[in-house]
Simulated assay, not measured.
Amino acid sequence: MTLIALITGANKGIGYETARLLGERGMTVLVGARSEELGQKAAQALREGGVDARFLQIDVTDDASVQRAADHVGAEYGHLDVLVNNAGIVGDVEGARGGPSAATRAALRQVFEANVFGVVAVTNAFLPLLRNAEAARIVNVSSEVGSLTFMSDPEHPLHQLATIPYPASKTALNMVTVMYAKELRDTPIKVNAANPSHCATDLTRHTGSRTPEQGALVSVALATLPADGPSGRFWGDGAPAADAELPW
């Protein structure tokens, strides 16, 4: 039976590369995107590359959109094998990128709506379909800037970063990951957080030193974990090797 994978925010960047790599492994990939135009374009490009890709309209900040997407996948396939919660933003309102004292309620709301609330909404909507799969995998695309250990270590390169909305949203996402893993620990479903590191994408304004494909590799590894693989952990390159696990 063909495995079905949904990747949110898959019309570009790390999400697109995650869809491509999973598709190359034989999965049917659902290209989750808000924009029909961009999503269809991405799905078409994947199909031209030999991937079985289908566009799925989904806005993770809109509950009605999320439920419509879940209903469609349920009617079409009856189950979901892989959910990669990749959609995320840094924010484009005042206070989203400035220092802590510049943070605004509007910036926090905008970023958390997509990066945290959206992940919970999507996961809950698709959980019945994930339970219908033989052994589903949930991957939450987090970031090393969400690590309290890294961010509080004066010797770590990230220590110089001082802003609230995006890092705090990824710290919250890490906790979300832990809690789902605890709830699902007696099921075949595995839930893990992935750190793609600093990639050159629209989100980073193309300042990253890594390619989107390199960033997607950890999500792909976690999406294809064997039955004895880990759950409830935070991973970087090389997952699930022990030295690839990151501190919360």
Rank of each mutant, 00 (worst) to 15 (best):
G39W: 02
G39E: 10
K41M: 13
K41Q: 15
A42D: 10
A43H: 10
A45M: 06
A45C: 09
L46T: 03
E48W: 08
G49A: 15
G49P: 09
G50R: 11
G50T: 09
V51D: 12
R54G: 09
R54A: 10
F55R: 05
F55I: 04
Q57T: 08
I58C: 06
D59A: 03
V60E: 02
V60A: 07
D62G: 01
A64F: 06
R68K: 11
R68E: 14
R68S: 06
D71P: 05
H72P: 00
V73W: 03
Y77S: 06
Y77P: 06
G78L: 01
G78M: 04
D81Q: 15
D81S: 14
D81V: 11
V84D: 03
A87K: 04
A87I: 01
I89W: 09
V90C: 06
V90P: 00
V93F: 04
E94G: 01
G95P: 02
G95Q: 05
A96S: 15
A96N: 06
R97P: 01
R97N: 11
G98E: 05
G99Q: 10
P100H: 14
S101R: 15
A102Q: 13
T104R: 00
R105E: 07
A106R: 02
A107I: 05
L108D: 01
V111A: 02
F112C: 03
F112P: 00
E113S: 13
N115T: 11
N115P: 08
V116N: 11
A121Q: 14
T123E: 03
N124P: 01
N124V: 00
A125D: 03
F126M: 13
F126A: 04
P128S: 13
L129Y: 00
L129G: 12
L130P: 13
R131I: 00
N132S: 15
A133V: 10
A133L: 08
E134Q: 14
A136H: 04
R137V: 07
R137C: 05
I138Q: 14
I138N: 08
N140C: 09
V141N: 02
S142T: 11
S143E: 13
S143K: 02
E144R: 14
E144S: 14
V145D: 00
L148S: 14
M151V: 08
S152R: 15
P154A: 07
E155A: 15
H156G: 15
H156I: 12
P157F: 03
L158K: 09
L158F: 15
L161Q: 14
N174K: 07
N174A: 08
N174Q: 13
M175C: 07
V176M: 09
V178Q: 15
A181R: 14
